[in-house]
């Protein structure tokens, strides 16, 4: 019991201290005004490109359910690169840039919890982006979001489950990063970019060729985005055929189940990579800077 309590305390300490560090790094690189401007412009610019493309293709049909589907999917997808990169980038950042990874590793730190903690700042910045994008959509583009009809319990459960799922997926990328060198720089962004097409973020899976759709069904992100949309704009989201046969409860079960599977797999993969890195002497390797 004492050992378990001590381990809990190590985990919590690792997470909280890393969260503090991550926020210091993320927010201190410039003055607060520039930081706020950057945090606003980046997501709004990303959404604007998509809206412009949609506007040209549909000749400005912003009243279609497709627009809400696409807009909300894209808004929440910002969490995917933010969290995946937040967890995995820390390995490169600490190892190559700050050269502190070996000191973190020789300290009584739970490394996965440390990595999760370092991603918190990216999550917070990502949240700014999501909120600003949605606010812009509601205020200027008539995204049909009625706050009184939002299913808040479902939204919160789905959001938390999704973020945890993304964090454990980031751990897989962190493990891979540990074993590789400079070419893994933006592994989080690369993977997030690759998955964008397969997770129903901006179009239903039916748009994909039939042989590609299983990729989307396999990924928990697909179910997470669907649940987020259903919780915010239920009727709009349910108009699309992909998951009409599944209730919210079913989707939540699938999301939690697949997240658990991903979580267990990620722990094994990270441990394997960590072991390999120690075998090969990669914990403190530096190839850049």
């Amino acid at each position: 019991m004492k050992g378990a309590a001590m381990q809990k305390s190590v985990n919590l300490r690792s997470f909280l201290t890393a969260s503090w560090l991550g926020w210091q790094i993320e927010s201190n690189w410039t003055d607060p005004f520039l930081f706020a401007t950057y945090s606003i412009i980046k997501p709004v610019a990303g959404a604007a490109i998509l809206v412009l493309m949609y506007s040209i293709v549909t000749q400005g049909n912003f009243g279609s359910p497709v627009f809400a589907y696409l807009y909300l999917g894209n808004a929440f997808y910002q969490y995917v690169p933010a969290v995946l990169t937040g967890v995995s980038w820390t390995i490169i950042d600490d190892r190559e840039h700050y050269r502190t990874l070996k000191y973190i590793y020789t300290a009584p730190v739970n490394i996965p919890f440390y990595l999760f903690g370092r991603a918190v700042a990216k999550f917070i910045v990502g949240t700014f982006g999501v909120v600003i994008t949605i606010a812009a959509g509601v205020l200027f583009l008539n995204v049909p979001l009625d706050w009184s009809r939002v299913n808040w319990p479902l939204f919160l459960i789905a959001l938390v489950s999704g973020i945890v799922m993304l964090a454990v997926s980031g751990l897989i990328l962190a493990g891979i990063t540990l074993r590789t060198a400079r070419h893994s720089y933006y592994i989080g962004d690369v993977v997030a970019g690759g998955l964008f097409l397969f997770t129903g973020a901006i179009f239903p899976l039916e748009v994909l060729p039939a042989w590609l759709r299983p990729v989307g069904y396999f990924l928990p992100i697909t179910y997470w985005l669907e649940l987020i949309r259903r919780s915010l704009v239920g009727t709009v989201a349910e108009a699309f055929p992909t998951f009409t046969a599944l209730s919210n409860g079913h989707l939540l079960l699938i999301l939690i189940g697949s997240s658990l599977i991903f979580g267990i797999a990620s722990i094994f993969i990270f441990r394997f990579c960590d072991h390999q890195a120690r075998e090969r002497g990669l914990i403190d390797q530096t190839t850049n800077y």
Binding site: I25, R99, A107
Partner: peptide, 16 residues
Amino acid sequence: RINMVSGGETSGYGLL
């Protein structure tokens, strides 16, 4: 129970 310091390097979080 341990700690370590390596010389000849400039490790540390520069923003802190």
